[in-house]
Design a binder for these strands. Structure first.
Lengths: 262, 262
DNA sequence: GAGTGGTCTAGACCACTGT
DNA sequence: CAGTGGTCTAGACCACTCC
């Protein structure tokens, strides 16, 4: 076993044993830890890199290395879809009070800050296939960033796609200044005569790309959950595709599958 | 911007531009790349570490650095639960033919190899809470490893928990040599008079622990999906809890949520 | 055995954080 | 300004893969 692995194992064991608790600073790389382990700085740093990749240690330039605190989870359920559907036909006053994210998280509209950007794009192959239209068809791309009011980085970035021709039926849907829209996308679809039959969600996890790490304020070595939501209308079409990137270490997705009785 | 970041950016751009395709070997670290970028070996390796963390490059000791091939996905749907329930009361001959994993992946029983280990444990706080029993209550812990016949490492490790007193009602359930059980857990529960009402799944993503990376044969820096499945019976009890760890870069979870009509 | 990546050293200098 | 981590060098030797 390599020296840096032995050091990483030992530090991990000391942390698990409680020698340093969550939020505590570890001894300085130089001269403390290099001295304790009788090693050079690069080797010690390689050991620390292992613990950072495992999510055990946070490095902070100029301050020190810290035992990572467990992150506060953001929960996202699949019950939100039925909830949002039930709400889509309520009066605006009701819809304005709270959205699906608040429903999941138990927060209020005031705790969260939204930012929306809209643009028209031509459908790439992958999206065109889902919508069953030719590549190059016009799509409305809407980018949403949601963050806690007290935090700087958003905790999710979502990109939603609608057929441009379809969205155009109601010019208000093309106006980003009307976001956050009371009642969400299902209400928007309702205003143009569309009812959803089911929502399909596909989930994978992977390391963040450079751009995502930047956008979500993630440390190198954590994971993101990539969720693609595909909304099917009652007349059998795909009417919305939404790609959401969530920080893996602070998101919990909850799906409930009801079963029919024997 | 640091030198190693510039090098990483340049290499990433060259890969995206197709200078090397999926599966191709990059030029040797020494002397090729260090020469091209006029840098020392450690700095070049730091640049490569960035690309490995992003999942763009695979390092293979003694062979070279390779552009990563797009991973083959293993799909897991939530329709499997209803499918398994429908199957639970079928004759053994029908149940024996295929299981839920094969249903999801389109593979046959012959493509997959199972390994099962059983033991009796005392419920830790976290599990006791879910089952609504006192901590220390006896649980049957069943560990399953599934792998492709041609691969060495399993693609998932699952740990399933049942109340020991409940499982004991049918001694066959305590016998690991009877696995894989035709019809899966829902058929096992059927034999002791239990019907499921719904299945709840909670999902997070995180870096693998040392033990998981080892067990699943993962490279450092990839992500795992941790899925906890909680099965609720028609009489309102939690009857099974199952923890599954899946390699994030080759698993796609698909959840379909049907919506009731307006 | 040739080629390739993996580990490690000793030390210099830069950049960030907090007092 | 002191303390801390971040970057970088030049080179030695080890371990793995494949011919």
């Amino acid at each position: 076993m390599a020296k840096y692995e032995k050091i990483a194992d030992d530090l991990r064991a000391r942390i698990r044993a409680g020698e340093w608790g969550p939020g505590d600073r570890l001894p300085a790389e130089t001269p403390d830890l290099t001295g304790q382990y009788q090693t050079s700085l690069p080797t010690l740093r390689q050991a620390l890199a292992v613990l950072v990749a495992e999510g055990v240690v946070d490095k902070m330039h100029g301050r020190g290395n810290f035992v990572r605190k467990p992150r506060k989870l953001v929960v996202r359920t699949n019950e939100r879809h039925q909830w949002e559907k039930d709400r889509a036909r309520q009066p605006e006053e009701t819809r304005r009070q709270t959205g699906a994210t608040e429903h999941d998280t138990g927060l209020t509209v005031l705790d969260l800050v939204f930012k929306a950007e809209f643009r028209r794009i031509e459908a790439p192959e992958s999206l065109a296939g889902l919508f069953a239209v030719p590549a190059g068809t016009g799509l409305l791309e809407r980018t949403y960033r949601t963050r806690y009011r007290e935090e700087r980085e958003p905790f999710n970035v979502a990109r939603s796609y609608l057929l441009y021709d379809m969205a155009e039926a109601s010019p208000e849907l093309l106006d980003p200044s009307r976001e956050p829209w009371p009642g969400g996308t299902q209400n928007q679809l309702f205003t143009i005569g569309i009812e959803l039959d089911r929502v399909e969600e596909r989930i994978t996890a992977r390391p963040p790309t450079i751009e995502e790490a930047d956008e979500l304020g993630l440390k190198a070595g954590v994971s993101v959950i990539a969720l693609r939501k595909i909304s099917h209308s009652t007349d059998g079409r795909v009417v919305e595709v939404s790609d959401v990137v969530l920080p893996g270490d602070r998101t919990e997705l909850v799906f409930t599958t009801p079963l029919s009785r024997w």
